Simulated scan of single mutants.
Amino acid sequence: MGEIQVEKDVGGIKGLSVITPKVYGDSRGYFVETYNKKDLQDHGLMMEFVQDNQSKSVKGVLRGLHFQIHHPQGKLVRVTKGVVYDVAVDLRADSESYGKWYGIELSESNFKQLYIPEGFAHGFLVLSKEAEFSYKCTDFYHPGDEGGIAWNDPKIGINWPGLYGIYQGDAKAEGYHLEDGTPLILSEKDERWDGIDDYEKSLSGNDN
């Protein structure tokens, strides 16, 4: 079948692509081809995937912003249940859009996928009661190689939809909540990430 739509360089960020597959539905339900290597190559997307991952999260969970330091991964992400707001931040040093972010709602009903090339930080916020998040990776996960940036770094300025709170100078979840009062939920690790300025200092070896 292989009918997909590809919007490339979304948000003015080179390499970032939104992929929308063709959905065949009737009274019984639907069928959708979620991945076709040839179709993506026809659109100039030549990546090779080596690992599939899936996570399940409850409403208010924010995972991110994550990246692999020495073994960067390209990721093709989608949601199989629920709704999330998915975000990619360009960390490629030679990119004209360095530090720029792009966000998109991914859900089980819109079937949209986001391809995030190597060199980006990635995260998502769960907006539904729960969400199942699936993604394909271009490299294997290497324990101990994970880096991160604070999800609420004001220099990046991500506008997480429906999330309220006042920035207190750190990445802690305390004081943040969704519109219906659901508290923001972060892992201890994600509450410790610094902002993009500190990330840049770590690259240059300057911690002052």
Rank of each mutant, 00 (worst) to 15 (best):
G2P: 08
E3M: 09
E7Q: 14
V10S: 04
G15S: 06
V23T: 07
V23D: 12
D39H: 05
L40Q: 03
Q41D: 12
Q41P: 05
D52T: 07
L62C: 05
H66S: 05
F67V: 12
Q68C: 03
H70D: 11
H71N: 15
H71Y: 10
V77L: 09
V77Y: 07
R78N: 12
V79Y: 03
K81N: 12
K81P: 13
G82N: 11
G82W: 05
D90F: 02
D90E: 08
S97C: 07
G99Y: 01
G99C: 15
W101E: 14
W101S: 15
G103P: 14
E105W: 00
E105M: 09
S107P: 13
S107H: 06
S107R: 10
L114T: 09
P117L: 01
F120A: 08
F124Y: 14
V126M: 03
K129S: 15
K129T: 14
E132I: 09
H142Q: 12
H142M: 15
G144I: 06
G147N: 08
N152E: 12
P154F: 01
K155W: 04
G157F: 02
I166W: 03
A173C: 07
G175P: 14
G175F: 10
E179C: 06
D180S: 07
G181V: 06
I185N: 01
S187Q: 02
E188K: 01
G195N: 13
D198Y: 03
K201A: 15
